[in-house]
Amino acid sequence: HNLTITQGKLFFHYNPKLCLSEIHKMEEVSGTKGRQERNDIALKTNGDQASCENELLKFSYIRTSFDKILLRWEPYWPPDFRDLLGFMLFYKEAPYQNVTEFDGQDACGSNSWTVVDIDPPLRSNDPKSQNHPGWLMRGLKPWTQYAIFVKTLVTFSDERRTYGAKSDIIYVQTDATNPSVPLDPISVSNSSSQIILKWKPPSDPNGNITHYLVFWERQAEDSELFELDYCLKGLKLPSRTWSPPFESEDSQKHNQSEYEDSAGECCSCPKTDSQILKELEESSFRKTFEDYLHNVVFVPRKTSSGTGAEDPRPSRKRRSLGDVGNVTVAVPTVAAFPNTSSTSVPTSPEEHRPFEKVVNKESLVISGLRHFTGYRIELQACNQDTPEERCSVAAYVSARTMPEAKADDIVGPVTHEIFENNVVHLMWQEPKEPNGLIVLYEVSYRRYGDEELHLCVSRKHFALERGCRLRGLSPGNYSVRIRATSLAGNGSWTEPTYFYVTDYLDVPSNIA
Rank of each mutant, 00 (worst) to 15 (best):
N208V: 11
N208E: 06
I209C: 09
I209N: 13
H211I: 01
F215D: 10
R218K: 07
Q219C: 04
A220I: 09
S223R: 07
S223E: 13
S223I: 11
E224A: 09
E224H: 13
E224R: 11
E227G: 14
E227T: 07
Y230M: 05
Y230F: 08
L232W: 08
L232D: 14
L235K: 06
L235P: 07
K236G: 15
P238A: 07
S243D: 09
F246H: 13
E247N: 14
S251Q: 14
Q252W: 12
D261S: 11
S262A: 09
A263I: 11
S268W: 06
S268G: 12
C269T: 08
P270T: 05
K271C: 13
K271V: 06
T272R: 13
D273E: 11
L277F: 12
E279F: 04
E282W: 15
R286W: 05
K287E: 15
D291E: 14
Y292D: 07
V296M: 12
V296E: 07
V297L: 07
S305P: 12
T307A: 06
T307L: 13
A309T: 05
E310V: 03
D311K: 15
R313L: 08
R313S: 09
R318D: 11
R318P: 05
L321F: 13
G322V: 04
G322T: 09
D323P: 09
D323K: 03
D323F: 15
V324G: 06
V324P: 12
G325Q: 15
V327T: 08
P332K: 07
P332S: 11
V334W: 14
F337Q: 10
F337V: 11
N339V: 09
T340A: 08
S341F: 09
S344M: 09
S344L: 08
S344D: 03
V345W: 11
S348L: 12
E351Q: 05
R353Y: 12
R353K: 09
P354V: 07
F355D: 03
E356N: 13
K357W: 02
K357R: 08
K357T: 09
V358M: 04
V358P: 07
N360C: 15
E362L: 07
E362K: 07
S363D: 10
I366A: 03
I366Q: 01
H371L: 08
F372T: 02
Y375Q: 01
I377Y: 08
I377R: 00
E378H: 13
L379T: 04
Q380C: 08
N383V: 13
Q384V: 06
T386W: 15
E388N: 13
E388S: 05
A394I: 15
A395T: 06
A395S: 11
V397H: 15
S398Y: 14
A399N: 06
E404S: 08
V411R: 15
G412N: 14
T415A: 13
I418N: 10
N421W: 08
N421A: 08
V423W: 06
V424Y: 06
H425N: 14
E430S: 12
E430T: 07
P431R: 01
E433P: 02
E433W: 10
P434F: 07
N435P: 01
L437S: 01
I438R: 01
I438D: 02
I438Q: 02
V439K: 14
L440V: 07
Y441N: 01
V443E: 00
S444Y: 13
S444L: 05
Y445D: 00
Y445M: 08
R447T: 06
Y448D: 15
Y448K: 12
D450T: 10
E451Q: 14
E452Y: 12
L453G: 11
L453D: 06
V457C: 12
S458Y: 11
H461Y: 11
H461M: 12
L464S: 10
L464K: 10
E465K: 05
E465W: 12
C468Q: 06
C468L: 07
C468M: 11
L470R: 01
G472T: 07
L473N: 02
P475R: 07
G476Q: 00
N477V: 02
N477F: 04
Y478R: 00
S479N: 02
R481G: 02
I482T: 02
R483S: 03
R483M: 13
R483N: 00
T485L: 15
L487W: 07
G489N: 14
S492I: 11
W493F: 09
T494D: 00
E495A: 07
P496Q: 04
P496C: 15
Y498F: 08
Y500P: 03
Y500F: 04
D503N: 15
D506K: 04
V507M: 14
V507Y: 06
S509H: 01
N510A: 15
